[in-house]
Design a protein around this nucleic acid. Structure first.
Lengths: 263, 263
DNA sequence: AAATAAAGTTAGATTATACAAACAATGTGC
DNA sequence: GCACATTGTTTGTATAATCTAACTTTATTT
């Protein structure tokens, strides 16, 4: 058994292999470094914010801005971000690939936890935050196969494929629907445990048909019907519910809904 | 997302609950600390060595003796080992419980990796070394249930139950058998990848019937018959193969052999 | 028992990650 | 375009985990 110097060791970049359109340099990042890259990817790409700042990153990661500045300098030395004093922060192509791999691992583990171990979707984030840092390409490839190469995780977020591609479909939110329109819930925009528990309470589930019965002209409150029950929700809430057209069989598979019998 | 101070934070011991015969104090150990406790447990209990030394520990953990001395002082301050300069090293009861939990996690993950993800037994150790440090009681309990509460891991080692008990059966080795005796392979004494690959090569598998056809008087080489094939093995090799009497149905379940159809 | 070998410890240095407090740059309001 | 707020950086400090080199203690051998 070797407890080793995994987080301490010097960087040894090694060109690995070229597949599809990206070149991957294998290197061992510390868990902290992986978290910084993941945060940067999320803040630069998933939200539509143009430039990410030190403060915002610090808030997102639960550290102080000074710490972020320090880390950015180290990430720059390792060619993972391009960044200059008071300037813009951006991931290098290589770092972006690495960050996508971490997200892939996170979402595959979340899928496993919900589908096979019976966790609810609001319980899995914390655990997946740890599992995502386990280093083994073989492991994640086999997990992917075990799960049947899912494209969507339990929150409705896209799982990038092995070659780093998000097979995205355009997303609409429940707040975009007009009166008397129907749609199917396909995901959520807020993955906090408190929001997810609220969604559960309200009775909404992935794959569920939603009918917009009415919208109050005065305060824009939305009345929807699900499972024959009528409930009232806010615009703020509706803006975090992703919806799509009626699900095709393939998408049902993606969501793993056909697997609930497993447990 | 919070990358947090998990490994950095001060110890906050909190008395948790008393169950069966042990009181568990919840505390957050760093991965390194967990590895030291695990190594101490292995060296003090699994092998029959009376006293563990700094050198031996250092060798086992892949660090220098000086590092071990440092760490022992810190573990003593946290009431995890009892130890005095140049004196004997031993785990406190609480630390022993924590170490057993780590071993439990390790062996459950190994079981999962072999049974469900199709890894060979010589591939799983490294990955389980990482997975064992994921902190979530809920996770490991659910994994345990998912696997059907196995008592034996892919190497034939005992998996402690949730309350820290190894449900041990006395172990005999193949080298203890006499001519014309038969037995069933139930485990191995050496978990190194090289040994396990050798076992695979020879054609031995857990649960397999073994017939000792003969033992050379001159050099004690053993001739065994498995699956109708006759092979010759050394005493050294035979001493690392654990055997038992014919398997009862229950033990078949423990080994997970009835599950191979899953993959 | 003295000499030597082995085992264990201390001291000082290093790296990764974090913080607080002080400081510097950038941006905004009027 | 100055005053002030916001944002970002530097400096100095701390802890966890490691190392090397020098030193001390214990054990073994003759």
């Amino acid at each position: 058994m070797c407890i080793g110097k995994l987080p301490t060791q010097k960087l040894g970049f090694a060109k690995n292999e070229t597949k599809f359109c990206r070149t991957v340099y294998t290197t061992t990042l510390t868990q902290t470094e992986e978290n910084y890259l993941k945060a940067l990817l999320k803040l630069t790409e998933e939200s539509a914010i143009p430039a990410v700042g030190t403060n915002e990153l610090a808030l997102h990661l639960g550290v102080k801005p000074a710490t972020v500045t320090d880390m950015l300098k180290r990430l720059r030395d390792k060619a993972l971000v391009s960044y200059e004093k008071y300037g813009k922060i951006s991931l290098t192509d290589n770092a972006r690939s690495l960050a996508i791999d971490v997200i892939r691992k996170h979402r595959l583990w979340e899928t496993f936890l919900c589908r096979n171990l019976g966790f609810s979707w609001h319980q899995v984030h914390e655990i997946a935050e740890q599992l995502e840092h386990v280093q083994s390409v073989e492991l994640i490839d086999r997990l992917d196969a075990f799960l049947g190469f899912p494209k969507i995780d339990p929150h409705g977020d896209l799982i990038p494929s092995k070659d780093g591609v998000f097979h995205a479909r355009p997303k609409r939110t429940l707040s975009m629907l007009g009166v008397s329109q129907t749609a199917v819930m396909v995901g959520v925009g807020d993955n906090s445990a408190s929001f997810l528990q609220y969604v559960d309470e309200v009775g909404l589930r992935l794959g569920m048909d939603i009918w917009v019965k009415g919208i109050q002209p005065y305060d824009a409150l939305i009345e929807i019907v699900i499972d024959g029950k009528s409930i009232t929700i806010s615009q703020k809430f509706a803006a975090q519910i992703f919806v799509g057209a009626k699900l095709a069989d393939q998408e049902f598979l993606d969501l793993g809904l056909d697997r609930e019998g497993d447990l």
